[in-house]
Design a protein around this nucleic acid. Structure first.
Length: 266
DNA sequence: GCGACAG
DNA sequence: ATCTTGTCGC
């Protein structure tokens, strides 16, 4: 398995090779006219990737969210596709899990169900947000990278926790919404030179009038996406919640299906 | 042996 | 990931 991951990492492309510009994703991107907010936002331009299919038609890109739920020894994988913030398609698949959860080998546990769900999809997403890590992995082949390379689809890894790597600055503080903190490879990432930026901690949401704070999401390139674009897409899909809409909706759909599935089984 | 570890 | 009531906050 580790050998396969090294091969996947070599095949993967951690650079932009997308049919659209992250700025055209829309559907979310909180733009509260509140206050103390004028710093960023204008990072999108001069990013023209050449042949934009979605751009050409002026049509927003098709963004897919992928998430899993479990019922005993079965994984329920749900995929929800959005275009311009509207749900266009939802599919799911149920597959038995082959191995238990082992940090670093997640794709071998959930991969089959995910690929099966994509098989049921009638469209080809322009990019997919996969729950879990992409490049932020011991061998730079997290589940987002594994799925992306297997389907040769642009993918982004969206995790709630850091698997490995070191944040350039402490994440244990209240970061402003929209901020990013680079995650660098360290000794735990055996395939990259220490110091290599393998992803970012991205603050998609933050409390305004509270002493407490929301932890950032851990975003990393899966395949055919750069670290900057990965973060751009996630922030563009954020709509008031910590999780980007595609992921949030896939999560809810997986739970919905799970309830029905656990009766067709036990 | 100890530590660390996505979902 | 999953098992779960109440509870604090906008």
């Amino acid at each position: 398995m580790e050998t396969l991951q090294r091969e996947i990492a070599e095949t993967s492309v951690f650079e932009d090779d997308l049919p659209f510009d992250a700025a055209t994703v829309c559907g979310g991107d909180r733009d509260d006219d509140t206050v103390t907010d004028d710093a960023q936002t204008s990072l999108a331009d001069a990013t023209d990737s050449g042949d934009g299919a979605a751009d050409a038609t002026g049509e927003p890109p098709l963004v897919a969210g992928v998430d899993q739920a479990f019922v005993d020894d079965h994984a329920v994988s749900a995929v929800v596709c959005l275009r311009g913030g509207a749900v266009v398609e939802r599919v799911y698949a149920v597959e038995p899990v082959a191995i238990p959860y082992i940090p670093g080998l997640l794709s071998f546990r959930e991969g089959t169900a995910i690929l099966s769900a994509f098989d049921a999809l009638s469209r080809e997403p322009d990019v997919a947000l996969v729950d879990g890590s992409g490049r932020i992995h011991f061998r730079e082949a997290g589940i987002a990278t594994h799925v992306g390379v297997t389907l040769d689809l642009p993918t982004v890894g969206v995790a709630k926790n850091l698997l490995c790597g070191t944040p350039r600055e402490s994440l244990d503080r209240k970061l402003p919404r929209g901020s990013r903190v680079a995650i660098e490879a360290d000794a735990d990432v055996e395939t990259a030179e220490p110091g290599t930026r393998i992803g970012d901690a991205v603050q998609t949401r933050q409390f305004e009038n509270s002493d407490r704070y929301v932890n950032p999401l851990i975003v990393s390139p899966g395949h055919r996406v750069s670290a900057d674009t990965a973060a751009d897409v996630v922030l563009a899909c954020a709509d008031g919640y910590k999780l980007p809409e595609p992921t949030r909706l896939a999560d809810a759909y997986a739970d919905e299906v799970k309830a029905e599935v656990r009766e067709n089984l036990g």
